[in-house]
Design a protein around this nucleic acid. Structure first.
Length: 221
DNA sequence: ACGTTAAGCTGCGTCTGTTA
DNA sequence: TAACAGACGCAGCTTAACGT
């Protein structure tokens, strides 16, 4: 769920000390428990608790991604959320229904079915919701016409004006497909500072390259 | 076969808590 | 108070697996 201040080392400590047993237990932690941990002062503990509180307000796509189902990463989770709209619908989907989702074939569909088949997983999901984890209803927003709609876009280099995630979310809102690698099917490459091999490949393949400034000018118009 | 994605690893810079 | 150390975010890269 991408919670700031709650990383691998902290989770490791919490699990080792048996302070948490499931992801839902994270939301039951208090300041006293956290400050007893190594390298955890009051400030860090407060930050972690604030991040946890903030993380309760999430999106269906992020929640699905956070379930940690194999083969279901950020992109697939987003597709599943947009397709099924609710967690219940995803939970009740059969093999055939799952395969209607872009990028989901038999293998991924079976992974999802196997996840829901485990009673423990269902219990953790229910517990997370009981702890206050929630999300806005997925609505199909009206998308205004734009240059990136339906196109495949790749981000490379460091974007200085806006974060990479912000740029990605913006492109997804414009119904662009944000991919991680450049191919002949890529429509645009947006190159920030110190762009690496992806920029070289785009140039080799003759893919349109936009600088960050050009991209910003484009979305502001 | 090809394009795409997930996952894991690495290095760097920044932030923050701890310690002297 | 300053220096140090750990944790983390971010980005690039590679590999393996999947979908078309």
């Amino acid at each position: 769920m991408d919670i700031d201040g709650v990383g691998g080392k902290l989770i490791e400590q919490l699990v080792d000390r048996e302070l948490i047993h499931t992801p839902a237990d994270l939301f039951k932690l208090d300041l006293t428990t956290l400050t007893r941990l190594e390298r955890m002062g009051a400030k860090s503990a407060e930050n972690a608790l604030a991040s946890l509180e903030k993380a309760k307000n999430t999106t269906l796509a992020r929640f699905i991604f956070a379930l940690g189902i194999r083969e279901v990463g950020e992109a697939t989770a987003l597709n599943l959320a947009n397709h099924f709209k609710t967690l219940e619908a995803l939970q009740n989907a059969d093999l055939e229904a799952l395969q209607q989702v872009p990028d989901v074939g038999e293998v991924v569909a079976n992974r999802i079915l196997a996840f829901w088949h485990e009673a423990h997983n269902v219990a953790v999901v229910n517990d997370l919701i009981a702890q206050g984890v929630h999300w806005e209803t997925v609505e199909t927003k009206e998308v205004i016409e734009n240059r990136f709609k339906g196109k495949t876009v790749v981000l490379t280099g460091t974007l200085t004006q806006m974060g990479r995630n912000e740029a990605k979310a913006l492109l997804q809102d414009m119904r662009a497909k944000v991919s991680g690698s450049v191919s002949a099917k890529t429509d645009f490459v947006i190159a920030g500072d110190a762009a690496g091999s992806k920029l070289t490949k785009a140039q080799e393949l003759g893919v349109a390259v936009l600088t960050e400034e050009e991209f910003l000018a484009e979305i502001q118009s």
